[in-house]
Amino acid sequence: MKRIIASALIAASPAAAADFSEGSTAKSWNLYAEAPAFFEAKVVDITCEVTGDCPDNCGDGNRQLGLLRAADGVLVFPNKNAQSGFQGATVDLLPFCGKSVEVDGLLIEDEDIKGASNIYQVQTIREAGTEDWTKANTWSKVWAAKYPEAKGKGPWFRRDPRVNAHLAETGHFGLGLEKDAELIKELFE
């Protein structure tokens, strides 16, 4: 019975009190509310986990994937992979769909921003019980294979066909090309 009471008390504790820094070797990104976090979890399709709508293979890379933390059952949301730039974590987590993994990275818990809780930047992943870590940095290679026509110099986000189609249509501020030209002139004069 003592064990049940202890479990109940742990589960009832505020999420902000959770500390998963032990064993972490995550690199700091100097973010205001970051904390290193190493934990075991199951990789899940978040839409499936939350709503019960569950396609095969966690949505095949089209859906955000989550980390159902083993220690407390909390659904952690990996927003970001380990690459600098603007890449999410789905591509890196998809090979581990449905598997128990260990992850290392940065947990964001910012009491000053509503909803900034259980947000994660995943840096490395390995299947539970295995030795070798996989770096969460595969997004750009997958993008390059998907858009071979966009090959060229500079970062992917300057060459992304979908992004560039939007910029060509409504400009960098999204307010139309005429307004865009006017604002850019002001910015750089």
Binding site: F77, N79, G85, F86, W156, F157
Partner: peptide, 16 residues
């Protein structure tokens, strides 16, 4: 509007 281009990059990049 200030962050629109970055919002496009992030959305295309799979940021939620």
């Amino acid at each position: 509007s200030a962050h629109h281009t970055c919002a496009l990059w992030c959305s295309a990049g799979g940021i939620p």
